[in-house]
């Protein structure tokens, strides 16, 4: 239990997917103009993250690794994740229309999202057990959501601010993202003190 908690907290706060590992930055910058969009995308990411882990984990450990083809993981994972997202989209569209309405438009964006692939590869690299890999994926998704939520809040405030023309748009957005990222450095060492 403690092991899972350590993984969960360290992935959310210390090794935050967006703010420390710099994965999924394109959607982080693209979909944080409003809190509503940010949350929709985050929920979709968490969902796909969990399902993809459940699919890619056995593929690696039961198929690729035994025949010594671990190096194929990147190619195979991209293929599998893209297919899984397509299949999920079709199923949700048919079976759960309200859910599709809430996150349907974000699913195609996730098809080749580096955040998903990154987490899959990290899970393999860390040689987690299956449950630990699921926990890590959940944590990564929640961490992504946290970063998206915080940054969307910052950007909504920034809309009203008087920004010099030469910094308006992407420059100020990147600077704000950097400051939010730095704020997460404050969590370094929290896990050792919590569970140490």
């Amino acid at each position: 239990m403690k092991e899972f908690l350590i993984i969960l907290f360290s992935v959310i706060l210390i090794d935050n997917l967006v703010l420390s590992r710099f994965l999924g930055v394109c959607s982080f910058l693209g979909l944080t103009k409003s809190v509503k969009n940010a949350m929709g995308m985050s929920v979709a990411v968490i969902f796909v993250m969990l399902v993809s882990t459940a699919v890619t984990y056995p593929i690696y450990w039961d198929l690729l690794e035994p025949v010594g083809l671990g190096y194929l993981q990147t190619v195979v994972f991209i293929l599998v994740i893209a297919s899984v997202v397509q299949v999920l989209e079709a199923i949700i569209r048919k079976g759960f229309p309200p859910l599709y309405k809430a996150m349907g438009i974000y699913l195609p964006l996730i098809t080749t999202n580096c955040a998903i692939l990154g987490v899959m590869l990290i899970n393999i690299q860390e040689t987690y057990s299956f449950m630990a890999a699921i926990t890590s994926s959940l944590g990564a998704g929640v961490g992504y959501m946290l970063a998206m939520f915080l940054f969307a809040g910052v950007r909504e405030k920034m809309d009203k601010a008087d920004i010099p023309e030469f910094m308006d748009g992407l420059p100020i957005t990147l600077m704000a993202a950097a400051i939010v990222s730095v704020s997460f450095m404050g969590f370094k060492g929290v896990i050792e003190n919590l569970f140490g």
């Binding site: 593929i59 198929l63 690729l64 025949v67 083809l69 194929l72 190619v75 195979v76 293929l79 599998v80 297919s83 397509q86 299949v87 079709a90 199923i91 569209r93 048919k94 079976g95």
Partner: peptide, 22 residues
């Protein structure tokens, strides 16, 4: 193996789209 997984994924997508088409 790569081609096999791609083929499998393709078949699964085809079937899912067939049964879950809107």
């Amino acid at each position: 193996i790569g081609a096999g997984i791609a083929l499998l994924a393709g078949i699964v997508i085809l079937l899912v789209f067939r049964f879950f088409s809107v």
